[in-house]
Amino acid sequence: MTTAVFLAHTAAPSGAELATLRLVSALRDQGRLDVAMVYTEDGPMVERMRARGVETRVLRGRFDSRSMTIASGPLGQARGFLMLLRHGWALGALTTELGARVLVAESSKALVLGAVAARRARVPLVWQVHDRIAADYFGRLPTLVLRVLGRLVSRGYLANSKATAATLPVGRRPALVAYPGIELGAEVPRPDQRPPADTVVTVVGRLAPWKGQDVLLRALAATKTLPRQIFLVGGTFFDEEPYRAELEALARSLALPVTFTGHVDDPTPYLRDADILVHCSVLPEPFGQVVVEGMHAGCAVIASGPGGPTEIVEPGANGLLVTGGDEQQLTAALDTLIADPALRTRLATAARRRATDFDITETAHTVAAFLDDIAQRNEAARTPLFRERTAYGRARP
């Protein structure tokens, strides 16, 4: 049986790490792959993964996941790159110890680590891409470097949406769009949609400028009927604390009834109590897991495009779409839903049906087949007969 080792550079509970938790857990439960998880630092995700019964290791040695950030500049990025290479060599030994037949890098930093580790362990490296590899997010030079590096070292790509896949230099390498599935579970009854003046609006996600919570607050302030309660559910990571302070000041200045919850391990109670879930990213979202989670919880959803949410929401059928960063469009969409509880109910009912299309068990099934195929190709390419036939042009990997 193929053993797949997944590598993450951080154990903080952010969107990509939670998506990996669900995927690895589903792969383990299906029994089609042996799986293991490696983190380069300790953190909450380590215990969460172990609680799911997944073999989980923390790479020994000091590692700072904030090195080589977009804002660290060329010199800082170069130092971080060298540190990643050093840790990648140690990871290669651990990859061999775990019996890996394929290594899966869960981020751009993990890609650098994995490139060294996979070469040392002589296993193929697959890049599972959770972010659009584009200049509007990473900047021009880092985007170019990542695209070239991915093309040089990865033997296959897993993309979390068509929008993400479109930013990758796939060429003729195997690639699969694998949506970050959700764990459906039983459908839980929820309160009816409230009257306009009692409406509860919720946003779930990290408090970060590109997530657009400031755009939402200004849009809400311009609505004809102000919601009774607004929840901003999410914490700050990666030195984004000043943005929360800006949001708090903005909410006070606009006299909005906003509650900042900070980070919560499970936002489901907030989603089940919300009438409207708003996804308001100002940059194209790679996928938008919270959109699916809100639909599954029975919210009426407003999501921003372009990007992954346009692959989830059918406007007017199971939600509304607006252009990211457009306050006037967002205000108009909020006015439409706040004023019409019957419309909210219709959209939320259809949204629950749509959410079932993103069952994690289906995603895991296709990912297992993909990784097993990558591993088998690698082992076939290492056989003497394959090398001899390839040398004479009669076979291809």
Rank of each mutant, 00 (worst) to 15 (best):
D275R: 04
R151I: 04
Y270T: 06
A221M: 10
A355D: 01
Y243R: 15
V215G: 01
G234D: 08
Y137M: 05
Y243G: 13
A4L: 05
T236W: 06
R48K: 14
L59D: 15
A186F: 02
L277V: 04
A36V: 15
L158M: 07
G53Y: 15
L168A: 00
T167P: 00
V145F: 08
D266H: 08
C299N: 14
M68A: 09
R86V: 10
T390M: 07
S72R: 11
L226G: 13
P341N: 15
L158P: 03
D34N: 09
R389S: 12
R272C: 09
G294F: 03
A342K: 14
R101S: 07
P169V: 04
A115Y: 06
E97V: 07
R377A: 08
F231G: 04
S161Y: 01
A51M: 08
R155T: 10
T3Y: 05
E55P: 12
D29K: 10
E240F: 12
G325A: 15
G61W: 03
V264R: 15
G316T: 04
R28M: 01
V188Q: 12
R352H: 03
L7D: 00
D372T: 13
I360P: 00
E293V: 07
S161L: 01
E55H: 08
R147W: 05
K224L: 10
G99N: 10
L271E: 03
G205F: 01
A197W: 14
T331G: 05
Y243W: 15
M83T: 13
R60K: 15
V313H: 09
T390G: 03
S107F: 03
G294H: 05
C280L: 11
P189S: 12
R377V: 05
E285M: 13
I70N: 11
V282L: 09
L82M: 09
L125K: 14
G325H: 14
